[in-house]
Write a protein that binds this DNA or RNA. Sequence first.
DNA 1: GCGGGGTCTGTGAACGTTCACAGCGTGTGT
DNA 2: ACACACGCTGTGAACGTTCACAGACCCCGC
Lengths: 329, 329
Amino acid sequence: MKRPTIHDVAAAAGISRGTVSRVLNGDRYVSPAARIAIERAIAETGYVVNRNARNLVRQRAGSVVMVLSEPPFEDPNYTTTIRTAIRRLGERDLSLVMMIAGDDREREQVLRYVRGGHADGVFLLSTHAGDPLVDTLHGAGIPVVSCGAVIGREAVIPYAACDERGGARQMAEYLVSRGRRKIAMITGPMDTPGGIQRLEGFADVLGRKASKKLIEHGDWTHASGETAMARLLERVPDLDAVFAASDVMASGALHTLRAAGRRVPEDVAVGGFDDSSVAISTHPPLTTVRQPLGDVARETVRLLLALIDGADRVDSIALPTSLIVRDSA
Amino acid sequence: MKRPTIHDVAAAAGISRGTVSRVLNGDRYVSPAARIAIERAIAETGYVVNRNARNLVRQRAGSVVMVLSEPPFEDPNYTTTIRTAIRRLGERDLSLVMMIAGDDREREQVLRYVRGGHADGVFLLSTHAGDPLVDTLHGAGIPVVSCGAVIGREAVIPYAACDERGGARQMAEYLVSRGRRKIAMITGPMDTPGGIQRLEGFADVLGRKASKKLIEHGDWTHASGETAMARLLERVPDLDAVFAASDVMASGALHTLRAAGRRVPEDVAVGGFDDSSVAISTHPPLTTVRQPLGDVARETVRLLLALIDGADRVDSIALPTSLIVRDSA
DNA sequence: GCGGGGTCTGTGAACGTTCACAGCGTGTGT
DNA sequence: ACACACGCTGTGAACGTTCACAGACCCCGC
């Protein structure tokens, strides 16, 4: 009934537990005979190493904590990121513990958890500028990386992200190439990398034509896309294209455009960002920018593992996006 | 530099480590004087209990593993479920470890993890009928619950879920009450509770009018919604309503209907299920059935905790859904 | 004054590993 | 013949807790 320990394996194989530990950890210096005897004993007894004991003596946690900030919006992209992270960490026998840092109490909990040595590293997700947790975590002397840049802390928290700015440039260039002349933009919140950098990319291409009149700020939600579009139409009734920094906001813009009697894409072209599940649900389907989410997650984990392995610094990385052309532009 | 241990706290408070352990675990039988001395020492030293040591001696894992099956589709609902679960488990100082069981290798990994005593309980998510993991996990003698019923194992794996059948009934009744006469349905895969039970609820209301001609099966994807709708239109050109078992499939149906020149809702009413983010992105916005995702997750955790605490059986529960009326029906 | 129950405290052993160390053959170079 | 490295193995100590036990103290009733 009791779970077999390393002693049981040693006894079954007729070898000392030290040698069993050695084969468990892939040490060289163990004779072929001993190795196969032990491997058979492990199979027979169904032995599985006790992580608590191992981590206790090794002074490690054996896990990485992924910290979700709680944004007011739903991000369907989380699942891909989580999946990928689990996979990559699993290869190194690290488990992924999830935590939320939505309010102060939760931030305190995360901090205690990390300070208590319960994690070997921290994986930040969608953390916004000024989050108090960032500095305290970094100060705790534990490896911290972020999936997506942390605005204002780009230098201190390594990250992997998609090339937000380049992606926005792709979209802006595409709209221009299709002959659009008055192109507006609905940005994300300006304390997020997606909010700031997608606007930068837009401005890179449009130059002085990206006037303040043509810019509205949203908060990633459908509703904010609707109202931003309404304001833009009021200010610039003859605009012929709009680039929303997310598909969800683009779908909001579509609603407003339809209500105003504008045809898409004939009168107004609409571009989105993310290539989320919403992109193909709208009418017309959205031309959008796809992020390589799996790759971004994989790279983020790679950075974290490097830090855990002792690297004293690693370089952040931006991965290229791709333009997905559908009917809206 | 080194993390303070219980010995350091004991020394700082001038009390033995046994007593420190007692206040840590809320034992009665500790004098007020000792308690405050120790509490101050804990605060001063910044002591946090070492979970590995604690769990080692307690023979527990201190965590619950959430197992994601890998379905071919994206489920934006995961995040809500994960969030809620983390919250409730956190209150009991249990951490949430995520694992994926998409292929055999991963299932093996989950099994080893659980068999190795690395988890105190298992939280299944979106597991489909016939998943080999279910029986082996249950056989491992560890508490297992599921968020959403596991088809074919309802009796052995306790679960919390929304009232799928009742929700479908709500939608069907609503369509009938609006005067619709030829109502078709696009179901989910018939090895999932959402696939089976939503069809049952539909049949409950329509009775013999729910003929085979009016039923098509999808796989939750947008594309499957499109093709299912096309087949239905071919078979029953004069249908005046369609109920899709998910919003995503409903959005696929909308595309096909539009391409066929049908107006929604004038010619054909469309109903969805989930009230996901796509429900408000479509044109027209979807009338749909909302699941109380947070409550479902909370109840699932409650069941799991009860089992972990030693209950030998708990009762599964179904939570009521609500009809969200928008423009599509 | 004594037994006994309740409250509180300290101590030793255990949990299952890893790691450093010491030891033992066996072969190899001098 | 001797030293020495090399490959391999066993052993004891440690990691930081909890838990059972034993004992000290105090109060109460007789």
